Computed example of a mutant assay.
Amino acid sequence: MSEAGQGGWRPGGGRHVLLAVHTGRQDITELARSSAARLARAGITVRVLDDEAEALGIEGAEVVPADAEAARGAEIVMVFGGDGTFLRAAELARYSHAALMGVNLGRVGFLAETEPEAVEETLTAIEQCAYSVEKRLAIEVDVLDAAGNVVGGTWALNEVSVEKAQRSRVLDVVISIDSRPLTSFGCDGVLFATPTGSTAYAFSAGGPVVWPDVEALLLVPTNAHALFARPLVTSPDAVLSVAIPPDGNRARVSADGRRALDVPDGGRVDVRRAARPVRIARVHPATFGDRLVAKFGLPVRGFRDARRHDPGHELPPSRNVLARDVVSLSSGTDSGSDGAAREEVRGGTADPDA
């Protein structure tokens, strides 16, 4: 394993898989239990978080605190839930070389690629190390006071939003790119997103959909009072800044909807590419375009060929574009068109250079 010899916490040696589970639903916990039993039969040590252990009741599982050490030495963090559970698991995997592998049990689930009916195939891939790992760009955030001193910081896989703290007032902002002022306007907030997060909050705010293998940073104003307040796509090496005038409204930062910080009066928020990417394990051959079609029910037949005009007629309801009966790739085809910096994983060992 890539963690060996690097001071990572790896009790007992061997292969380890950490489970992150939305325990609020019985069907999810049952699927996690059955998956854990199969992994254990394959000789893989299953870890569970201490705040989920009682609800899961997995006999023989290794119970670990839900902190930065939880994924140390683990090969996979297997996520059972929706994108919210996936983002919580990303916090656990951030400081390790573990790759995230999600089973989508939520409503949309762009981050978790495996649907419940394909769990057995995913478990086989884990047992045989027959998966690839994508390195997804993440972003780091610095919050500075009026004197330019860093007073806080966080990170995000999807997006960071700078929002007005008082709903009744407009937030005045000054936007800068690489320390050069670009524009200013009043708004409800400003989103800074990664390509991975382009289909999340930024998408609903009118931002572009960006393929995950495109390295870029996105800036999307929300409800701006300005003629020029279009979404921007910048270099991944740019530093994006939003300054809050001292006489303006109070602002706060929200990262992935999970971590929040206050911005001091007259302060500034700087956003840049994180030094460490997030690693996501992939098993299935569906491309990112296939996922867009499946998640949004996009029409994939020419409009002149369509004979029906009711919503959802493009694909029979029993078929899913993510399933192999719709998406067929030859054995020699590289399925990594949507994967950022894919790397093959063999023998349970991933590239240690995150």
Rank of each mutant, 00 (worst) to 15 (best):
V133Q: 08
A205Y: 05
P277E: 11
L292E: 03
S161F: 12
A37C: 04
L261N: 02
E115P: 08
T122R: 10
S318H: 08
A224H: 00
A68F: 02
R291T: 12
P264I: 09
A4K: 14
A99H: 00
N249H: 10
R47M: 14
T183P: 07
G43K: 06
L217Q: 11
A354K: 07
R346I: 02
D50S: 15
T222V: 13
G5F: 09
A229R: 02
L111T: 10
V170W: 07
I175W: 04
A165Y: 10
L298I: 05
W155H: 05
S241N: 06
F203N: 02
E69L: 04
V253N: 13
L322H: 04
I58D: 00
M101L: 15
L31M: 13
A89Q: 13
V327W: 14
Y131H: 04
R230F: 01
G106I: 14
R276A: 09
I175C: 09
V173M: 00
D27W: 03
R324C: 08
L232K: 13
E344A: 14
T114D: 07
M101K: 05
P285G: 07
S179W: 01
G14K: 02
L298C: 04
D27Y: 12
G60K: 11
S254G: 01
R301V: 06
S35W: 11
C129N: 14
A68G: 02
G60P: 11
A55R: 11
R72W: 01
T85L: 01
F296A: 05
T154C: 15
E3R: 06
D237W: 06
I126W: 14
E159V: 01
A281I: 02
V160L: 04
R230N: 08
L292V: 05
S328E: 02
V17F: 03
I177Q: 15
A243T: 14
F296N: 06
R304M: 05
D172M: 01
G332N: 11
R33C: 03
L157D: 11
S204L: 13
G186V: 09
A216M: 00
I244W: 00
I280C: 00
F80V: 12
D145V: 12
A36Q: 03
R273M: 06
T333W: 11
V283L: 12
V63G: 05
E314L: 05
L171Y: 06
L19V: 12
G186C: 08
R291F: 07
L292M: 13
A193P: 00
R252I: 12
S168Y: 12
G186T: 08
L157Y: 01
Y201G: 01
L87F: 00
A224I: 04
S235V: 04
E62V: 04
I44E: 10
L39R: 15
A224L: 00
A251S: 13
S184Y: 05
Q6I: 14
E91R: 05
V141S: 10
A260R: 15
S176I: 09
V63Y: 02
A323P: 09
P11G: 07
V326T: 07
V327H: 15
S241Q: 15
A37L: 08
V151G: 13
R72T: 00
L144R: 03
T199M: 10
L56V: 14
A89Y: 10
G106S: 13
G73K: 06
